[in-house]
Amino acid sequence: MKTTIKFHRLERGLKQSDLADLVNVRRETIGRLEQGQYCPSLRLAMDLAKVFDTSVEELFSFEDEDMDTDTASATARTARTAR
Rank of each mutant, 00 (worst) to 15 (best):
L14H: 04
A82N: 05
D21S: 14
E65H: 13
N24G: 10
E65L: 10
M1S: 09
R32H: 08
I30Y: 00
Y38T: 15
E28V: 14
L10T: 15
D47P: 11
D21F: 07
V51D: 00
T81A: 02
T78I: 04
R43W: 11
T69R: 06
L14Q: 01
R43P: 06
H8R: 11
E28N: 07
M67G: 13
L48E: 02
R83F: 07
G31Y: 05
I5E: 01
E58K: 14
D64G: 08
S41Q: 10
T54W: 06
S61F: 07
M1P: 12
D68Y: 11
A72F: 15
F62N: 10
T75F: 15
T4Y: 01
L59D: 00
M46I: 06
R43C: 12
A74W: 08
F7S: 13
A74Y: 13
T81Y: 00
L42E: 15
A72G: 12
T81N: 05
L22P: 02
A82Y: 10
N24W: 10
R27S: 07
L59Q: 01
T71D: 06
A74R: 12
T71Y: 07
F62Y: 15
L44S: 05
N24K: 13
T4R: 00
L14Y: 04
E63A: 15
F60M: 13
D47Y: 06
S41R: 11
E63V: 14
L44M: 06
R27L: 04
I5M: 03
T71L: 12
E65N: 06
P40H: 07
S73K: 10
K15D: 02
